[in-house]
Write a protein that binds this DNA or RNA. Structure first.
Length: 218
DNA sequence: GCCCAGGTGGGTA
DNA sequence: TACCCACATGGG
């Protein structure tokens, strides 16, 4: 399965090209990722920009009345959950780290850093892995709906494996230096070709590696 | 109108 | 432990 994942990676890289690296500082990444939960990029971006426009710094978001944060992020959806989550996360970081920064996580083993993040209400395995991988260069593999679906169809993870379980499995199968590009490529593939409802298997560059294609014959 | 979007936490068996 | 569900907005 290790070999198969590497073959998938090489093929996706050839098909879609080298993905761009996202570049936010850890605290901004944390807020942005909470906003992105079960939401598309457009709505996430709108909410994030509104938040930045209304509040000069993350300290201001942290200390603002809940209703103002909720109003600012409304376009992202689920704002009644996300606003308290964002403020709670910003406050927890401030209390535990002594200041509003996540840089101290760099000095921890990745599993300790992950456990620290997921202990915060509103930060689950996917959000934690995004923060670790994207903004701290630490070896965590985020599994979102696309990664879960695509690796499941390929047969890299079993049909009964949950998204949460898939984190550890994929981390064991891929070398850490390709976590970031592989993650990005799987999402690109999931969006462009391997859709949730109507996968375009005729345009898929990896049908020869895909269990789903073998069975469904799309 | 319905489905989907880079999930998470709480409830239930 | 393992499912099931609410949560809300906007685009195709």
């Amino acid at each position: 399965m290790k070999n198969k994942l590497l073959r998938v990676y090489r093929r996706l890289l050839k098909t879609y090209g080298t993905p761009d690296r996202p570049g936010l500082d850890p605290v901004s990444e944390m807020v942005s990722t909470i906003l992105s939960q079960n939401t598309n990029d457009t709505n996430r971006d709108r909410a994030y920009e509104r938040l930045r426009a209304r509040f000069p710094a993350w300290e201001d978001v942290r200390d603002a009345p809940l209703a103002e944060v909720e109003e600012a992020i409304r376009p992202a959806g689920l704002s009644a959950q996300k606003a308290p989550r964002i403020q709670h996360a910003l406050r927890t970081v401030t209390e535990k780290a002594g200041r509003l920064s996540l840089d101290f996580l760099r000095d921890l083993p990745v599993e300790e850093a992950r456990a620290w993040l997921t202990s915060i209400n509103g930060i689950g395995p996917k959000t934690a892995a995004i923060i670790l991988l994207f903004s701290l260069d630490m070896p965590a593999f985020p599994v979102d709906t696309h990664v879960h679906r695509v690796t499941g169809r390929l047969g890299i993870i079993g049909p009964r494996v949950s998204a949460e379980q898939a984190h550890a499995i994929l981390e064991s199968l891929a070398p850490p230096d390709i976590y970031l590009p592989l993650h990005m490529l799987l999402i690109t593939h999931g969006r462009r070709t391997c859709h949730a409802r109507n996968p375009d298997c005729s345009a898929c560059p990896i049908t020869d590696l895909c269990d789903y294609y073998a069975v469904s014959g799309h």
